[in-house]
Design a protein around this nucleic acid. Sequence first.
RNA 1: GCGCCCUUAGCUCAGUUGGAUAGAGCAGCCGCCUUCUAAGCGGCAGGUCGCAGGUUCGAAUCCUGCAGGGCGCGCCA
Length: 584
Amino acid sequence: MNLFKYFKDEIVAALARLTEAGTLPGGLDLSKVNAEPPREEAHGDVATNAAMVLAKPAGMKPRDIAEALAAELGAHPAVTAVEVAGPGFINLRLADGFWFERLAEVLAAGTAWGDSTLGQGRKVNVEYVSANPTGPMHIGHARGAVTGDALASLLEKAGFAVAREYYINDAGAQVDVLARSAHLRYREALGEDVGEIPDGLYPGDYLVAVGQELARLHGDRYKAAPETEWLAAFRAHAVTAMMGMIREDLDALGVHHDVFTSERELVEGGKVLAALDFLREHGLIYEGVLEPPKGKLPDDWEPRPQTLFRATRFGDDVDRPLMKSDGSFTYFASDIAYHLDKYRRGFPDMIDVWGADHGGYVKRMQAAVKAVTEGEGALDVKLCQMVNLMKGGQPYKMSKRAGTFVTLRDLVEAVGKDVVRFIMLTRKNDAQLDFDLDKVLEQSRDNPVFYVQYAHARCHSVLRNAAETLPGVDLAAGALAAGPLGRLTDPAELGLIKALAGWPRLVESAAEAHEPHRVAFYLYDLAAAFHGLWNKGKDDARLRFLLDDDRELTMARLGLVRAVASVIASGLSVFGVEPVEEMR
RNA sequence: GCGCCCUUAGCUCAGUUGGAUAGAGCAGCCGCCUUCUAAGCGGCAGGUCGCAGGUUCGAAUCCUGCAGGGCGCGCCA
């Protein structure tokens, strides 16, 4: 249960009673009334702004509303104290028993604690990675992959029905270049000395195997044949091979998609034409000439009539071209068809995860989605900023092939998939991220992966010790939930329970904001609270988890420890990170 | 020239969708400590939230303008 949502409902109900009693006028807009944790711990457990936001519409003083509402709320059995503070906040303090119930709830639910019905099964499509099928994934792709994957998991936890999708850009000129590059490697495999890979072709040695495979399949049949005879077949083969490689890269990172959509199939299936027809029927396409861009002008600029989409009607800055001069579609045209396709597959809510270099593309895509779904669809675009690879605080190049990129595989091999995943989520997506190969493996408080994993491992260490010193005692979550949790009266213990109780609210707010990084910060704070309690046990033996002379209190504390482990595991599972039970 | 993003402590960053006295971690200073396998712990200090206006009971958060940084700007993807 999201306790803040619960108390918001209680507050709304109390306001209804006050309206009925004539204390408040009817017809008030309650949408701005909230219930949230106060910033200051001293202000209690739940605070509401109700009196302040209703003062003006009700024509009353905030203080008067607050007094009346406070009296109502004070009658709630879980509320032990109500105070009106500041300009009209109402602060509620909750009974310890209420928190013990939450702890029992955490234990009963296990890692399902925090699952929400917020999404009500609404379908959401999250498209991420979508790296061009022309080579292995690099470090920049990794951030988008992890961000999209974690966002999808987060939305699932919040009750949405999520589809994870990959869009294969296999129709543009870049895959023809790939085919030609593969052809060169094919000739090489047949014994020809091809020398240096010419500019304009992909030089990567990952194409050597593709060339060999093509030579095995086709012999020398296409060695000197004109391009028209082999291009399509070589392209298809090479794209398949590249996608196989990309899937392996994603697998190494633990990222999996439900749906792979091929741009080429959209084009060949007539879906781009259909989308353009739709726009044309709605009067959103015209032949026209664009103004030259202000500022730096392309060298070969000349005014040219083009097929344009009226993007400006939907909030974009200029209308956008849909056709190239050779009559083929622009990338934008097939992207419109793709988003329409997603919409027609039942996804009015779409999220795309892109690299920041596509920032200039967001407005037109959102404009197109509005146009093509007649305002029914919504597209949110998460732009992932650059990852700066560092080592020991200095910028670092890890490339195996001079002048090329750092591959995702290199990175995963260097630090492990869980570290890559967690660190990628320690910044909001639109801020640049420093990834320091040394720091992420450091065993210190400064390294969030270690700090969080360590908290989880410590919990399990305590449980292992307990199993040894208390043979035959049931340490399963269910049994501990039924234990004497009321013995947990130390402020640090109650604080930890409150942190655990905040997890459902965090899941919901992070899911609504599409911000998975908040989970990382929550986990860090939770780990800090747990480590803090542990450290208190160093100074004060009475606060240790395992006590020889108080079996009851030990059992209660083991419940708390298991609950902490469970919530950390729950948070890490959103990130696709394996919680460790032992540090090595 | 235009659009989008960013600007919070010396450094790296949070900031719960407009709330109360803006928070962490490093680094700094002052103490303490040798473990329920474990990263040592506690405290102090550190701020004109880029600048200037505006909206409101209330602004780091919303609006306008300006400055600085990043990305992008007709057929590339």
